[in-house]
Computed example of a mutant assay.
Amino acid sequence: MKTDDLIAMLASGPDVAAAPPPGARWRTAATLGAGLLASVALMAAWLGVRPNLAQLALRPDFWIKLAFVASVCLAAWHASRRLGMPGANTGSLLRWLALPLLLMWLLGAAAIATAAPELRAELFWGTTWRSCPLLIALLSLPVLAAMLRAMRQLAPTRLRLAGAAAGFAAGGAAALVYCLHCPEMAASFIGFWYVLGMLVPAAIGALLGPKVLAW
């Protein structure tokens, strides 16, 4: 049997499973933890935590917002991790990313449809639409740098897609940090302006992926 045939047989065998290199999980956790702490420190020093955060935490829509952002962040992180392992199954990644987005969009659409006409614009625009996406994008930069550094320790092959997933995960993490400052609660606002802020680092990651993640 030729060497190339043996390699092909082993690679296509049923017992072969994609796995990160030894020690990658600990290095990744340390790298991402440092990026997240930097984002939290930037938010606290620049924007500050809302003084009425304890009162906001008593509202169900606050926890809906947190659950949405956390779900998007975890789904994007899972996608970036799978894209960093050659041969890993990536067929269901889009569904995991789309599910929290669709649920929040449906919730926001229902809220606008049932609201009084004079309140619908406020539910969508809120009071911080001009700054919200930009602030999320800026807070995501330390996490994005950490995500890309962590992915360099893996072996992504679809570099642009892997970079976009890393950027979207960084945007989700930054949005989670931004929740400690943001006063907005409407599902329609969160589903559009928060997601817009997450898409900025996703676009940056897609641009940087072929250059930063090449191996």
Rank of each mutant, 00 (worst) to 15 (best):
L56R: 11
I7L: 14
S39E: 05
A38E: 00
A11L: 12
K65Y: 04
W46H: 09
M43K: 00
P22M: 09
M9T: 12
P60A: 14
A29F: 09
K2T: 15
M1E: 14
P21S: 13
A57T: 02
L53F: 01
G23Y: 06
M1H: 12
P22D: 09
Q55F: 10
M43I: 03
G13F: 00
L36R: 02
D4F: 07
P60M: 04
L58S: 13
P14D: 01
G48W: 03
L32V: 05
A44C: 10
R25E: 12
L37F: 11
N52T: 11
V40W: 09
T31P: 01
L32E: 01
G48E: 03
A11P: 00
L53E: 03
D15I: 01
W46P: 07
A44Y: 04
L6N: 01
F62W: 15
P51V: 04
K2M: 09
T28S: 11
A54P: 01
D5W: 04
T28W: 10
A17K: 14
P21I: 12
A29E: 09
A11Q: 14
K65T: 14
L56P: 00
P20L: 08
D61F: 07
L56Y: 05
A41M: 07
R27E: 04
A34L: 13
A30Y: 05
I64Q: 14
L42Q: 08
P21H: 08
A17T: 12
A34D: 00
W63Q: 00
P51H: 13
P20T: 09
V49I: 15
R27K: 13
D5S: 10
P22T: 11
W46S: 15
L36I: 15
P20W: 03
A30I: 09
L10W: 11
G33D: 01
L10P: 04
A24H: 12
V16G: 07
A29P: 06
P14M: 00
G33S: 01
T3N: 07
L32I: 11
R50G: 11
A18S: 08
L42E: 08
S39D: 02
R59K: 11
L42N: 07
G13W: 00
A8I: 02
A38S: 06
M43E: 11
S39A: 15
A24I: 02
A29K: 04
A11D: 15
G35R: 03
M1G: 12
G48K: 06
N52V: 03
R50K: 10
R59L: 15
G33C: 02
G33P: 02
A29V: 14
L6W: 02
K65Q: 11
T31A: 13
L53D: 02
A41G: 02
N52L: 08
D5A: 12
A41S: 12
N52Y: 07
P51S: 14
A17R: 15
G13M: 00
V49K: 07
P60N: 05
R27F: 01
R59S: 05
A30N: 06
A45M: 13
P21Y: 09
V49M: 09
A19V: 14
P20I: 04
V40N: 02
L42K: 06
P60T: 10
A18F: 02
A24G: 04
W46D: 10
W26P: 00
L32H: 02
A34G: 01
G35N: 08
D61T: 15
N52W: 09
G48P: 03
W46L: 13
A11Y: 11
W63N: 00
K2N: 15
A29Y: 10
A8D: 15
F62A: 06
A29R: 09
A30P: 06
D5P: 07
